[in-house]
Write a protein that binds this DNA or RNA. Sequence first.
DNA 1: CCATACATGTGCATTATTTCACAATGCCTA
DNA 2: TAGGCATTGTGAAATAATGCACATGTATGG
Lengths: 218, 218
Amino acid sequence: MPNKESKIPNSTIERLAFYSRPLEALLKSGPPIISSEKLAGLCGVNPAQVRKDLAYFGEFGVRGVGYEIRDLLKEIKKILATDRKWTLCIVGMGNLGISLIENENFRKRGYLFVAAFDSDARKTGRQLPCGLTIEPERKIRELVRELDIEIGVITTPSRAAQRVTEMLSAAGVRAILNFAPTQVRTPERCIVENVDFSVKLESLVYHLERLYKGKRSA
Amino acid sequence: MPNKESKIPNSTIERLAFYSRPLEALLKSGPPIISSEKLAGLCGVNPAQVRKDLAYFGEFGVRGVGYEIRDLLKEIKKILATDRKWTLCIVGMGNLGISLIENENFRKRGYLFVAAFDSDARKTGRQLPCGLTIEPERKIRELVRELDIEIGVITTPSRAAQRVTEMLSAAGVRAILNFAPTQVRTPERCIVENVDFSVKLESLVYHLERLYKGKRSA
DNA sequence: CCATACATGTGCATTATTTCACAATGCCTA
DNA sequence: TAGGCATTGTGAAATAATGCACATGTATGG
């Protein structure tokens, strides 16, 4: 693995994650080999794209044959660093927070929620179905260190997101997944990814609207 | 508005939605005017990008001055077609489904959930806090027509996503927002947007891992 | 009424990403 | 062991997105 990795598009990384979905499904019930063309078809992308994305990281296929699904999946997981466990905490135990922490998919993929926080005193102390107890926000610092938490997930209202970001990164969290529909600024070396549902919705209605009124522009 | 719109990048559309967040906040408590530089700063993008994104749709600013926040927001909403109400339904009333349907942000932005479906007979008939009753999936066809539902939101497990997509699009839904971590194929003229949390998480851990091991590649 | 300051709108260069198209290469069969 | 088939890996072309830099136009102050 040379330093070819210097400039890998972020979209490649997201696609790798994306490829792994159908691969996992095929692992159970499919043939042992898949071609870039088949995989591309399943993911709705171009076959050359699949090959190029993989080529950034090595040669995983066999010419004239294809990719062994089992191996390919293992390689992708190694690349993405999902071949190990990650410890997470979540801040903001509203409906969304609860749905994430109870979501089996995360656990299955090695993302372990080990702490849950909320600022609301009526919620703290309550035990969740997954076994965790909701802690007050002031314990963030202590627990992040004690439990060696690497990633923080924010599911608070927008107005709290910046404050929580600062608490988390000050406590030593290295990355943040932010569900609040607001841009958070991170001090120093802390990575953020935003997930904003309504941005997707708005992109959807934009396109919808153009379809209604005949696409009479071309 | 000429046919300049023929080839507008999708990223422009998503950014427009993105710009509207800080604008809404500023509307309440800020000055009435903003420059592309300020807005860009708030959104973490390049000022020229902001101007170019807007320029696809018209001239909304005043040279030497900036953009009037109130007007700009109105224009963006017009562009995105969020200046009107949209009717939605949701399929899959697990934790995630509930958190979406109860989310006030959607209602405030004009996205109205008017029906909720689930295939589980233990859930159907139950009334939600928002007032809706969970309906069985077989009523999708009937209710989509009756209530003139334009957008379907899928929060089912992966294995059900494709089936539900087909039911929705057959019933006449024009667009689908899919939260299941799987690629759905839409028959004909139905638009899909996917929201996949774990893809974001995996992109996050990829970058995290590279930071740990010194970025000794450049 | 002119000069100055400021910020937009935009042509163009730059950079990034995607796709094509084909040489390289491993499998299989005879 | 050679020849044919299939599919990868990859340079080079095409396409797309971003950012610069400046001409254009507006407001303001003397």
